[in-house]
Simulated assay, not measured.
Amino acid sequence: MQRPTIPSIILVTLMITLLGPDLYGQNLGDDISVPPSPYPISDDAFTVSTLAEGFSVPYGIAIVDDEEYFISDRIGKLFHFRDGTLTEIDGVPRVGLAKLGEVIFLGGMMDLSLHPNYATNKWLYMAYVSDDGLSKVARCKIENNAIAQFEILFTTQHQTLVGNGLRMVWEDDQHFFLNIGGTSFSTRSHPILVSQDLHSEGGKIHRLMDDGSVPEDNPVFEGFTSPSSIWSYGHRDVQGLQYNKALKELVGVEHGPKGGDEFNVIEKGKNYGWPLYSFGTDYTGEPVSLISKDSAAVFTVFPEYYWTVPTDDGGQAIGPACLLKVEGSNIADWNDYYLMGSLSFKRLLKYDRATQQTYGLTVEGRVRTIKQLPGGDIIALVERSNTGVSNGKIIRISR
């Protein structure tokens, strides 16, 4: 079993002390209760079937075709699903996990992605936190149910266990974007400016070549003489990324602290403000923002939309875990909407970007990842975040 580093253990203990047992909607008990939807339930027509079970924390999925996928389990496992058969892959790199008992808070094996030319080159990409606490991107080929030709393409210089996202999305067949989350616990009285530090990888969206090198057309920031991997900064924790090739537009959903979850249009070289300004507050109720809204408007980018669910104690985050723009799906009620998993409210949500209306759906559970199959059905990974109970699953959503 992979073990967390000592700093991560201290960090998780501090998190529990400050936040109690429900960080991002995690449930520490044996029973999962699903809160009422914070938004109206949309009466959409679809059916749900379970394809595979027995995962601890299924996190990333790379889709080969309608009946073949690779799935990561955050505890440090990789699986191949094909025609209804699930096979574990050998040779997976060791991961670092920050846990409290059996509940995973930070780290582990996260996103998976196929190279756009996978049909010919067979490269599978994986983003994970290694057992040394560094975030890494590697690529490999799968041969005889084992990892082969393993290559580490990108490694952070600093430990990034606090970064929960580690999402990858391809711009074209040569470039991909990578999120690395930043710290969650900055307050006005104790500011932590990792996301604003251009010498640190945390709290940034990175843009890389398919071999892990830095593209020549990446931004050159003030005080630097050459481009780095950083594409944008000032992010808290982007856990859903979507790239529209037709519009050449990158969008992401991002965790706020206590409220203030964001939908952002992510542009080259821009500062997205964390923690200088936030529409949320700290979990303790203390303000986060270090500057006024007027000042932030001068040099940071505000979200296109943000979510704070009203409560008696100042608001609740939805905890957006993934993002999918549905187009050409078999589920007509979802076409042209964005889907995202809400970790806090343990259900799938749909968002109408045109009207800025959000709806609850009857797909319940901590939906960690959602993708569309080539044939139009939707695949979702539903997690437990508890390594002691292997009841994570893959579901297929059809009309």
Score class of each variant (00 low, 15 high):
residue 70 F to T: 00
residue 277 Y to K: 02
residue 306 Y to A: 05
residue 300 T to E: 07
residue 63 I to D: 00
residue 147 I to G: 00
residue 162 V to C: 04
residue 334 W to R: 09
residue 221 F to H: 13
residue 151 E to A: 03
residue 144 N to E: 10
residue 79 F to A: 01
residue 334 W to L: 15
residue 194 V to E: 14
residue 264 N to K: 11
residue 269 G to K: 05
residue 44 D to A: 15
residue 41 I to H: 06
residue 353 R to G: 05
residue 74 R to M: 11
residue 395 I to N: 01
residue 8 S to H: 02
residue 171 E to A: 13
residue 387 T to D: 11
residue 81 F to L: 14
residue 317 A to G: 13
residue 56 S to F: 09
residue 288 V to N: 01
residue 226 S to R: 12
residue 150 F to I: 06
residue 358 T to Q: 12
residue 229 S to I: 01
residue 374 P to Y: 14
residue 123 W to E: 07
residue 202 G to A: 15
residue 36 P to T: 07
residue 54 G to Q: 11
residue 314 G to K: 06
residue 243 Y to L: 13
residue 142 I to M: 00
residue 49 S to C: 02
residue 104 I to N: 10
residue 255 H to P: 11
residue 195 S to L: 06
residue 352 D to P: 00
residue 381 L to P: 09
residue 329 S to W: 11
residue 249 E to P: 01
residue 192 I to D: 07
residue 273 G to Q: 05
residue 209 M to Q: 15
residue 185 F to L: 07
residue 225 T to C: 10
residue 253 V to L: 12
residue 384 R to W: 01
residue 254 E to Q: 12
residue 111 D to H: 06
residue 142 I to S: 00
residue 320 P to F: 12
residue 58 P to H: 04
residue 263 F to H: 05
residue 299 F to E: 10
residue 336 D to C: 04
residue 16 I to V: 14
residue 356 Q to A: 12
residue 47 T to R: 13
residue 6 I to S: 10
residue 93 P to E: 03
residue 167 R to D: 01
residue 240 G to D: 03
residue 218 N to H: 08
residue 132 D to I: 08
residue 166 L to N: 10
residue 289 S to L: 06
residue 14 L to Q: 10
residue 30 D to W: 05
residue 123 W to K: 05
residue 228 S to A: 04
residue 73 D to T: 10
residue 74 R to N: 05
residue 358 T to R: 08
